[in-house]
Design a protein around this nucleic acid. Structure first.
Length: 782
RNA sequence: GGGCCUAUGGUCUAGUGGUUAUGACGUCUGCCUUACACGCAGAAGGCCGGGAGUUCGAACCUCCCUGGGCCCACCA
C-alpha cells in the first residue's frame, strides 16, 4: 500500500490535522525576489501592521489572507513578485502598552530606559503577529522583514525630512494641542478620558454695536471671554434672525465680535447663542479653522491667565479666573442666570485634571500648495474598486498642511538641533540616523547665523504616518540600492483597508510625490472592513472582536482563507459568519474526496485530445472556460471570482454530473482500456487544473493534494497554464446533459425508487455522443 | 452633528434598463447509489429596504426617507 492511499484511507475529510502536517513544508517555501529577472515584475506595498498589544482582529487577518492570495496568484501568472512584510512599531500604542504593563510613566522614566522597555515589548508582541501570519501561510519575504523603528528605516524617514526641509516643504506653525497643566505636557488623544462633571452654565449679555439690542450667550468657560472671536447662532433660529452678521461687543473687554449663523449652534441648548473662544474645546478649534477666525490665547502653559486676560484675571488659575469673572460679570449686571449642568469634560487620564487646548509651535508639511497636483495624481491612480476613489478625492479637497511633530518618545526623532545662542535650527546631512535628544550634532558644526558652537537637540518625534507613508520607498530601497529602486519603483500595487485612505494612502501619495515626482504605485487595492455577525464593526470597546487564531484552529486556515476570499468582493465590508466558514470547510472536504476518488484509478497514459471520448472533451472545454474566467479574476486582483467559479464548478458540474457520468468508465466496467484511460486522463487533467487555480486561495490543501498525486515541485512554484480556446457548442450540449440528468433524477424521485434503479427512457438524439456513459450512469435499459 | 459609501429569499451573495432574478449557508422531504452523511437527490422560500419620479418598460437611472458602514467632529 502506498503512502498516498494510507492518507486517503485514514482521512475521509480535509481536517486541521492534515493541514498542520502540511504547514511546516508550506511555510518553509522560500519566496526570493530578483529585480534582474526576465519576468514581469509585480511589486506590492502592503500595510505594515501595528505591533500593539491588542489581539489582531479577524478582519485584519482576512484582509492579509486576501493580499496573500494576490501575491500568490501573480506568481502563478508567471510574474516575479516583490512581496515584502514589515512591522509598524513607532508611536503611542506601544508607549501606552509599556506604561500599563510595567506600571511606569513615560515622562517620569529616563528616555533611554523607556525606549528600551518599549523595544522589548515590541519584540514580544511582534512574535505573535508573525505566528498569526504564518498560521495562514502568508507568503511574504520573511527573511527581509522591515521594521519602522529600525535604524535603516528611521534613517529613511529622517532623510526624507531633511530633503523636504531643503526643498522648503517644511514650515512652522502653531497647532492647538491637548495640554495637561498638572503634568506640564501635551497629551495624546488616546490619553484623554471623558467624565461628566457638574459645572455652571453662565448666561450673560453682549451688547450689539450701534444699537440698544443685546444678545444672551451661555457658556461654561466664561473666563475665556477675552479670547472670544465670534458668536454663533443657528441659521434656522427665528429669535436671532435680525442679529445675523451684526457685531456684538464683549462685556468687560469691549471687543467687537461677529454674530454668525452656523448650524453648529443648537437652538435648544443654552440660550441658543454660543461664543467661540480660542480654545474652550475641540469645536472651537474646528470652527476657528473653518471660519478662519483670529486666535487670541489668554491661558499660558502653567494654566494661568495671561496678562491680556485683564489686570484682575492676570496670573489666576483657570478655575479661579472663572469664579472671578463670574462675579465681575454679575457686578456689571451682565448675568441673566447661572444654571447647574452636567458637562462631559475631557480629563487627563493620569492627573484627572481638565485638559486645556493651547497652541504650540509645531512643524508642518506643506500640502496646500500642491493640492491640485495631488488631485491629478489621484485621478491617475487606478483604484480597485473604483468607487473608493471618491473617498480619497473628497479628502484631498479639504486637506490642510499636515502637522508632523509630536511630543512623544518612541518614534523617529526630528533630526534638528538649535543654536543655544540664536535659536537658529541646524539641519544635518541625509543618510544617517540622528537622535538629537541625546547626541550632539555630528562634526562640531558652527551656527550659520551667529557662529555659535553650542546646540540643543529637538526632543520631538514625528507623527508615525511620516514613517509609514514612505514604505513604498523603503521596500524599493530608495536610499540603499539605486539599481533595485530603478527596477521596482513605482510599485505595481498598494493594498490596504478603506479605513486608512485619509491617512496612509493620502500621505503616501503626498510624500512619495514630493520626493520622487511620481505616484508610488500603478494601482491601489482598497478592501472593506470585517464586521461581526450583526454587521457591526469589531472593536475592543464593544467586546465583539474575534480572534483569528481561534477561528483558524477550529475550522482550518484554508477554510478561513476560502471564506475570506469568497465572502465578498474586494472593497465590500464582510460579516463574520461561522456557518459560512463551515460551508467553506465542507467545500474543501468535497475537493478532498474528489481527489480521493481520482487517486484510486492510478496514473493515466498520455492521450491526444482528439482521441478523447465526447464526455471528456466536454468537461475539458468547460475547464478551459473556467480557467479563462479565473485568470481574468486574478488579473483584476479579484479573487472572489475564481473562488466562487471554482466552487460552483466542482459542486454543481464536475462532481455531480461529470464524475457520475464517467465513474463506471473509469472503473473500467464494460469499457475498453482506451475508453477507461480517456476518463482517467480527463479526471486528472481537470483536477490538476483546479488545484492550480485554487492554489493561491487555499495553499494548504492544494499543496497536500499535489504532493500526494502529482509529486515533483511544490504546486506554489508552478504556473497556471493559459486557457486554451474552448468550443461553445459542446458546452451547450453539456448543459443538455445536466438537464437530462436532472430530469431522470426527478423521474426516479417521483417514483420513489433508488437512483440505481433501472429506467427505460429515450436518450435525445443530440446526446447520442454521450450515450454509453449516460446508460451506465443512470442504469438505462437499452 | 458633517462628508462619503451601501441596502437583493431566514443569513450572505451574483446580477447595471427588457432574465423563468445567480449561487452558497440554513430549513423541509427522501436516500448510507463501491469519493464524500462535512454526502446525494428533490423541494419550499424573494411585492430585489420604504416612498416618489424618469421610461413603452427599473433590482438596475434620479430625488427623498430609513437602516448599516468608513472617516472627521463630539456638545458651548
Amino acid at each position: 500500500m502506498t503512502e498516498s492511499t494510507d492518507i486517503f484511507e485514514e482521512n475521509k475529510n480535509w481536517n486541521r490535522k492534515l493541514e498542520k502536517d502540511t504547514a511546516e513544508k508550506l511555510i518553509s517555501l522560500k519566496w526570493d525576489f530578483s529585480p534582474y529577472t526576465e519576468k514581469e515584475i509585480f511589486s506590492i506595498d502592503t500595510p505594515p501592521p501595528y505591533t500593539s498589544g491588542r489581539p489582531w482582529h479577524l478582519g485584519a487577518a482576512a484582509q492579509y489572507s486576501k493580499i496573500d492570495t494576490i501575491a500568490r496568484s501573480q506568481r502563478m501568472l508567471g510574474k516575479e513578485v516583490l512581496f515584502p512584510v514589515g512591522m509598524d512599531r513607532n508611536g503611542i500604542p506601544v508607549e501606552r502598552y509599556a506604561e500599563k504593563k510595567y506600571g511606569i510613566r513615560m515622562r517620569d522614566t529616563p528616555r533611554e530606559k523607556f525606549l528600551e522597555i518599549c523595544k522589548t515589548s515590541l519584540d514580544e508582541l511582534e512574535k505573535e503577529m508573525f505566528d498569526i501570519l504564518n498560521s495562514f501561510a502568508y507568503s511574504a519575504d520573511f527573511d527581509n522583514v522591515y521594521r519602522t523603528d529600525s535604524k535603516e528605516y528611521r534613517t529613511l524617514t529622517q532623510s526624507t525630512f531633511i530633503e523636504m526641509w531643503k526643498k522648503g516643504q517644511i514650515i512652522r506653525g502653531t497647532r492647538p494641542s491637548n495640554y495637561c497643566i498638572d503634568c506640564g505636557t501635551t497629551i495624546a488623544d488616546a490619553e484623554i478620558e471623558y467624565k461628566t462633571i457638574d459645572t455652571n452654565l453662565v448666561y450673560f449679555y453682549f451688547k450689539i454695536k450701534d444699537s440698544d439690542q443685546k444678545i444672551l450667550v451661555a457658556s461654561t468657560r466664561p473666563e475665556l471671554l477675552g479670547a472670544c472671536s465670534a458668536i454663533l447662532v443657528n441659521p434656522e433660529d427665528e429669535r436671532f434672525k435680525d442679529l445675523f452678521n451684526k457685531t456684538a461687543i464683549t462685556p468687560l473687554y469691549n471687543q467687537e465680535v461677529k454674530i454668525i449663523p452656523h448650524s453648529y449652534a443648537k437652538a435648544d441648548f443654552g440660550s441658543g447663542a454660543v461664543m467661540i473662544c480660542s480654545y474652550g474645546d475641540y469645536n472651537d478649534v474646528m470652527i476657528i479653522k473653518e471660519l478662519q477666525l483670529p486666535e487670541n490665547i489668554i491661558v499660558d502653559t502653567n494654566g494661568r491667565m495671561k496678562e491680556k486676560a485683564g489686570a484682575k484675571l492676570n496670573n489666576l488659575k483657570v478655575n479661579e479666573a472663572r469664579k472671578e469673572i463670574i462675579s465681575m460679570l454679575q457686578e456689571g449686571g451682565y448675568v441673566e442666570k447661572i444654571e447647574k449642568i452636567q458637562h462631559r469634560t475631557p480629563l487627563c487620564e493620569r492627573s484627572k485634571t481638565p485638559i486645556e487646548i493651547i497652541p504650540l509651535d509645531e512643524y508642518y508639511l506643506k500640502v496646500t500648495d500642491i493640492k491640485d497636483k495631488l488631485e491629478e495624481l489621484a485621478y491617475q491612480l487606478k483604484i480597485i474598486p473604483e468607487q473608493h476613489k471618491q473617498i480619497l478625492l473628497n479628502w484631498l479637497k479639504v486637506s490642510a498642511d499636515w502637522p508632523i511633530s509630536r511630543r512623544r518618545y518612541y518614534g523617529t526623532e526630528i533630526p534638528l538641533w538649535y543654536c543655544n545662542n540664536c535659536k537658529e535650527p541646524y539641519l544635518p546631512e541625509e543618510g544617517e540616523y540622528y537622535q538629537p535628544w541625546k547626541d550632539n550634532p555630528p562634526g562640531n558644526p558652527t551656527c550659520k547665523k551667529c557662529g555659535g558652537k553650542e546646540f540643543t537637540g529637538d526632543e520631538r518625534t514625528f507623527d508615525t504616518w511620516m514613517d509609514s507613508s514612505v514604505s513604498a520607498l523603503y521596500v524599493t530601497k530608495y536610499l540603499y540600492d539605486k539599481n533595485f529602486y530603478e527596477k521596482t519603483y513605482p510599485l505595481s500595487l498598494r493594498t490596504q483597508g478603506i479605513d486608512i485612505i485619509r491617512t496612509w494612502l493620502n500621505y503616501s501619495i503626498l510624500r512619495c510625490y514630493q520626493l520622487t515626482g511620481k505616484l508610488p504605485w500603478e494601482k491601489a487595492w482598497i478592501d472593506g472592513m470585517g464586521l461581526d455577525e450583526h454587521g457591526e464593526k469589531m472593536a475592543k470597546s464593544k467586546g465583539n472582536g474575534i480572534d483569528p487564531t481561534i477561528v483558524i484552529e477550529k475550522y482550518g486556515a484554508d477554510a478561513f482563507r476560502f471564506w475570506a476570499t469568497s465572502e465578498a468582493l474586494p472593497g465590500s465590508n464582510f460579516l463574520f459568519s461561522e456557518s459560512r466558514l463551515q460551508g467553506s470547510a465542507k467545500f474543501l472536504t468535497k475537493l478532498w474526496n474528489v481527489a480521493r476518488l481520482i487517486n484510486q484509478f492510478g496514473e493515466p497514459k498520455e492521450i491526444a485530445e482528439k482521441d478523447l471520448n465526447e464526455s471528456d472533451k466536454w468537461i475539458i472545454n468547460y475547464t478551459e472556460k473556467l480557467t479563462e474566467e479565473c485568470i481574468k479574476g486574478y488579473e483584476e486582483l479579484n479573487s472572489f471570482i475564481p473562488a466562487n467559479r471554482i466552487r460552483e464548478f466542482i459542486w454543481n458540474v464536475f462532481a455531480p454530473h461529470y464524475i457520475e457520468l464517467v465513474k463506471a468508465r473509469a472503473y473500467g466496467e464494460g469499457f475498453s482500456d482506451d475508453e477507461k484511460n480517456s476518463a482517467i486522463y480527463t479526471l486528472n487533467y481537470v483536477l490538476k487544473r483546479v488545484l492550480l487555480l485554487m492554489a493561491p486561495i487555499t495553499p494548504f490543501i492544494t499543496h497536500t493534494l499535489w504532493s500526494i498525486l502529482y509529486k515533483g515541485e511544490a504546486i506554489h512554484y508552478l504556473s497556471i497554464p493559459k486557457a486554451k480556446e474552448y468550443n461553445n457548442q459542446i458546452l451547450l450540449l453539456g448543459d443538455k446533459i445536466m438537464e437530462f440528468d436532472s430530469m431522470i433524477w426527478n423521474n426516479k424521485k417521483e417514483k420513489g425508487v433508488s437512483l440505481r434503479e433501472p429506467i427505460t427512457i429515450n436518450i435525445p438524439a443530440e446526446l447520442k455522443p454521450f450515450e454509453k456513459d449516460l446508460i451506465m450512469m443512470h442504469n438505462i435499459n437499452k
